[in-house]
Design a protein around this nucleic acid. Structure first.
Lengths: 241, 241
DNA sequence: CGTGTACTTGAGTGGGCTCAAGCAGGGTGG
DNA sequence: CCACCCTGCTTGAGCCCACTCAAGTACACG
């Protein structure tokens, strides 16, 4: 079978070489041919706002590389309440936490419009076991995720820290691109599920930020909406008692 | 060089083969001789209550296998407040999160009397890179830790869930041995730093549990004290709104 | 046996929750 | 293209849990 360029394999719709996974996979001992083979089974999908990419407890059958938008990773506490434990952004890979488990550990839901590449788990596992150096890279990636989760724990949670401060910290973490001022605009319900408050309180704080000009609403549909944030002001609030 | 039995290498003070790491390392493709070599650099330490095993930001020079007692993993939020992000118990390994980083990610502090084996990081890294199958096992271990951290997030945190409920959930997780009724007894300050409340509130809830006979205080020094818990009662409270 | 730290307990306050009503604006169907 | 509708957001009033401040107690350790 004739090899095509990876771009074509990806149906010309995207450049797989811009993918976060590719960053992990090239280097080490992966040849270009291997990479092209790997890309053979990959498909490119659009997810509209609110649709699930996969569900907690469902059989683990693929990982997904997020190419645009934001994805919330949801868990449920013993009382059945929804809790958002992490947020993925462009370049992150959804599902690697569960890569060697039977079922997905979370439900992954699109926030706004999302594009993602679906990589069947059989391809993924085979590729990883064929290339020893990759395991090391995955290990690093997994440890990054752990660090991120712990950062959420220590910065976003905690009854002692006022909701206002934690919200500022959250918005700083929800920036679409590191260092930019564009902020993923989640629903009040989502924000509540992240930092552990009620939607009403979230609304009051945001209204306050908007009145002070610290946040400016943008976008004209749930799929594309966002905030512009006054980053220095948010950073100041984030450090308050 | 003559090989000695691992027990002797460990100065006869402990059986390295009961270690949580060993569980990861044996199986796969590690020979007994390799294991004995590996154990050559290991030392066995006692830590008294409150002493630090290592500090956040310090150069990463070893991992520690916890052989007895409990260890709190501490971080600091932007306001300088102490937050406990995870608790290690017998069989867990402290420092693997940072195994491929320059510095430690947390401060690790003994709660009660702790025994731990110190494994120099150079040994550890060499051993891992020599044995391909180990990376896979470490990856799994790392993903376990991630799951644990996210469980804390979703179960112990959250302003909506009453402190009483979260405390019950915490005590269930702090059992010394899975399924037992012996519970690691942390200071009020520590408990406060874990679930994000004040020590006063923690005191009130515990006093209440003790009055109801759900918890019974045991041990006669900070180094050895513990609770006995009425597990069914705690489980019932843990599921309340 | 003394000293200090950790814990207990109380009274008062306040931030965030609850319940409830009104509003806006995006999506849908006529 | 317009009007409706429904979801998500806003805003208010009152209450309650957990925080704060403060004092007193117990007990671990030297």
């Amino acid at each position: 079978m004739t090899k095509m360029t990876p771009q074509v394999r990806c149906q010309g719709r995207s450049n797989c070489f811009a993918c976060g996974l590719r960053h992990e996979m090239v280097c080490s001992d992966v040849s270009l041919d291997d990479l092209i083979d790997f890309h053979a089974g990959i498909e490119d999908f659009d997810y509209e706002h609110g649709s699930a990419i996969y569900h907690m407890g469902a059989p683990m059958e693929a990982v997904y590389c997020v190419r645009g938008g934001a994805v919330k990773m949801v868990r449920y506490d013993p009382a059945g309440e929804q809790r958002i434990v992490r947020v993925l952004k462009t370049g992150d890979v959804a599902g690697i936490e569960s890569a060697f488990a039977e079922k997905f550990e979370h439900t992954a839901i699109a926030v706004g419009r999302v594009r993602a590449c679906r990589i069947p788990i059989s391809y993924f596992r085979k590729f990883v076991s064929d290339h020893g150096g990759l395991q090391m890279r995955l290990l690093r990636k997994s440890q990054e995720a752990l660090r991120e989760a712990e950062t959420w724990l220590s910065q976003l949670m905690g009854g002692t820290t006022p909701a206002r401060t934690r919200m500022a910290r959250l918005f700083l973490r929800l920036r679409a691109v590191e260092g930019g001022d564009k902020i993923h605009r989640f629903s009040l319900e989502d924000i509540a599920a992240i930092i552990g408050i009620t939607p009403e309180t979230a609304s009051r704080v945001i209204s306050d930020f908007v009145r002070q000009g610290i946040l400016v609403k943008g976008g004209n549909s749930y799929a594309t909406r966002f905030f512009r944030g006054d980053i220095p002001a948010l950073e100041k609030i984030a450090q308050e008692v």
